Amino acid sequence: MFHKTLAAALAAAALLAGAAKAETLRFSSFEPPQAFITGTILARWAEDVTAASEGTLNVRMFAGGTLGRSPAQQLELVESGVADLAWIVTGYNPGRFDGSLVAELPFAVTSATSGSVALWKLHEEGLLAGDYDKFKVVGVVTSSPNAVVSTGAIAQPEDLRGRNFRASSPLLLKALEALGAVPVGGITGSNLAESISRGLIFGTFNEWNAIQTFRIDEAAGHVLEVPMGTSTMLVLMNKAKYDGLPEAAKAAIDRHSGLAFSEAFGAAFDANVVDHRAKVVADGKTKVTEPSAEQLQAWRAAVQPVTDGWIEATPNGRAIYDRFIELIAEVDAR
């Protein structure tokens, strides 16, 4: 009896020890849990890392702004340790990760896959200036190209003159200036549809995933598919937290970070873009326009000063831009 009791106690102790070594990582997202990026890409990443960690980790999503509601607050959550990881939109943190702004330039990125892979490789090559070394960088990615989403038909650059138009980052606000629009910043995704419906803005630069998540098409009604830059995004982890993890936990995170994260993110993002765009076109309530070659050239010429200005103002700007475009072409040629 004694030996059976001892064996049971030892087994229970082993189970408790195994459970105790699984550390919970808090992964913050300002998006609602059902949003595509958070509910599909980030949640899947959390599950994959947990499964690969040999019982050392439990990565738990805190979506819907549970740890902090503002998109601009996410980086601070990681720095302060309130969150261990966070989904971060670069444009809400000016001056912190400016190297990645090369991917926000109009007409640079062709897809979320090419942009995300190229941006990660720039990071690996040490060409992205910013505070990356202060964090464990899980992913550096881009959206698919933005379109011109508006309440009325837009065909040529001059159609934006004098219009209140929203963009999510300083660089894209400069693009609006170059187009003669009245740039409007500070409107987050969750407030876009209302701002359009109330007439506060005539439209916005956004890609199909955001159009879907925030139901922008229902308020706007027109989408012109001119590649007006992207949104660049990050998944960052508190460096001290990462450094303090056991090797099996670090290995699980590393296995699903970097190029692997960029590839997985880009593929899922692009597939969702194709799916949602097809649904909107089939529904017929929103007019989706593919511009002609002549229209594209007019738009490219109108915003070229933004690219030229970024290259001139950025240390090593020409080399970074040329390398980024080269990497985009390499991914597209696969």
Rank of each mutant, 00 (worst) to 15 (best):
P183M: 07
G126W: 08
S197V: 05
A260F: 08
A7I: 15
D98E: 15
D159N: 14
V49Y: 04
Y92P: 04
S143K: 10
S70K: 10
V273N: 03
F324H: 00
L224P: 01
E225P: 05
L234Y: 04
D332Y: 09
L234K: 11
W87I: 08
G284N: 08
V223W: 00
G186E: 08
G199Y: 03
A268R: 02
K241P: 01
F2Y: 13
D254W: 05
R163Y: 10
D322N: 07
S29K: 07
G317I: 01
L77C: 10
A319R: 03
T142S: 15
A63C: 09
T232C: 08
A267Q: 13
R277E: 13
R334P: 05
V306D: 00
G91I: 04
K134L: 08
T56G: 12
W87L: 13
G64Q: 04
G130I: 11
I325K: 01
L172N: 09
T24F: 11
V306A: 02
A8K: 15
V49R: 04
F30H: 10
S231G: 14
N272E: 14
N206D: 15
L85A: 14
K250S: 11
G284Y: 10
F324D: 01
E23Y: 08
G91C: 13
S100H: 03
T307I: 05
R96L: 14
E207Q: 09
A175R: 02
G68T: 12
F261T: 05
R334Q: 14
G203S: 04
V274H: 09
A220R: 01
P32R: 06
G64H: 02
G81E: 06
L259C: 01
A17W: 12
G244A: 04
G18L: 14
L172K: 09
P157T: 06
I41A: 06
A175T: 05
I253H: 08
S190N: 07
A298T: 00
A46G: 13
Y242R: 08
A52D: 08
E194C: 02
W299M: 00
P71Q: 14
K121D: 03
A167P: 05
D217G: 02
V109D: 01
L128G: 02
L245G: 11
K136C: 06
I154E: 02
F269I: 08
A52P: 06
S195A: 15
N209V: 15
A278Y: 12
I253C: 06
N316R: 09
I154C: 06
G39H: 00
P315W: 03
N93F: 08
Q74C: 13
A278V: 14
S100W: 00
R318L: 10
F97I: 09
G186H: 11
S169A: 12
L236A: 11
A20K: 15
N58Y: 07
V49G: 03
G203N: 05
V141I: 11
A329P: 04
T151Q: 09
G139S: 09
N93W: 08
D243R: 05
K134I: 12
A112Q: 14
E290Y: 14
D308S: 06
G221R: 05
F36A: 02
S53R: 03
D270K: 07
F269V: 06
V117E: 06
F36I: 06
G180R: 01
G309A: 11
A319P: 00
S168C: 14
A147E: 09
L171T: 12
A83K: 11
L119M: 07
